[in-house]
């Protein structure tokens, strides 16, 4: 379970997030929606410990999140993974990254680790790309490799930042089908998305965020007023879906 209490976050005095109280039970498939600049990515970076939490608290499984993260990993798919296209890494190398933190300092990967990585690639349907250089993969293929990396870490939590950003329409659907399968196998998933059509099909819990939380409830309880407060001018798109 992830519990966020009284979280505030400012950058140079500007409030990015305020009064955030949120509880996500294990096994949820939660979506965070909100306009650009709503603080969605900031919130997940705070959960991941990539940004320093100054006010409020984040508890994961009842433990203060910095302490939890010392011994555990959250599988994370960033919106864009920053890397040099010419970097000499194969898809398999990238998946193995999900296991690297579990190995002692200086230890090398063995056959068992590589087998685990191959199994994760199989789960995401891209085993055939294991030996391909990452610079040669399409956006969709690379997303699946990154998902395999998140899976191989065996974390019970999976956080995704706009996974549909580099996928075409059919790939978005098949990607979310895969996420739904993982969710039904017990993974707790949090995804940021703008694709409300897809979210309404697959997610069970919607978090509407625009600096503050406007709602955090199961999808069927969300009404147009709440979404209007969250999105403002983007309402037209939302009315189509809800």
């Amino acid at each position: 379970m992830i519990q966020i209490k009284n979280l505030q976050y400012k950058i140079n005095g500007k409030i990015i997030l305020e009064d955030i109280f949120l509880e996500l039970a294990d096994g949820e498939f939660a979506a965070i929606i909100g306009p650009n600049g709503a603080g969605k990515s900031t919130l997940i970076k705070l959960i991941l410990g990539l940004l320093e939490l100054k006010e409020g608290s984040i508890l994961i499984d009842g433990v203060e999140h910095y302490n939890w993260l010392k011994n555990n990993t959250i599988g994370y798919l960033p919106q864009y993974e920053d890397f040099d296209n010419a970097f000499p890494a194969t898809a398999l190398d990238i998946v193995l990254m999900g296991l690297a933190g579990k190995l002692p300092l200086g230890a090398h990967f063995n056959k068992n680790h590589k087998q685990k990585a191959m199994t994760a690639l199989e789960q995401t349907g891209v085993t055939h790309l294991a030996k391909e250089l990452i610079g040669k993969l399409s956006g969709g293929e690379f997303q699946r490799v990154l998902l395999a990396r998140a899976l191989v870490s065996e974390s019970k939590y999976l956080i995704l930042d706009e996974p549909e950003a580099s996928l075409d329409r059919p790939s978005v659907d098949s990607f979310f089908v895969l996420l739904k399968e993982l969710n039904s196998e017990g993974k707790t998933i949090i995804t940021i998305s703008h694709d409300l059509t897809t979210l309404s099909k697959y997610c069970s819990f919607l978090v509407c965020l625009n600096r503050r939380l406007h709602c955090h409830n199961h999808t069927e309880l969300i009404d147009a007023d709440v979404i209007h407060k969250t999105f403002g001018d983007s309402l037209r798109i939302i009315e189509k879906d809800y």
Partner: peptide, 15 residues
């Protein structure tokens, strides 16, 4: 290898 690839993601995966 992973520090060179992406230090932020290396941190996420506790390397």
């Amino acid at each position: 290898f992973y520090l060179t690839y992406n230090p932020v993601m290396a941190k996420v995966y506790r390397i």
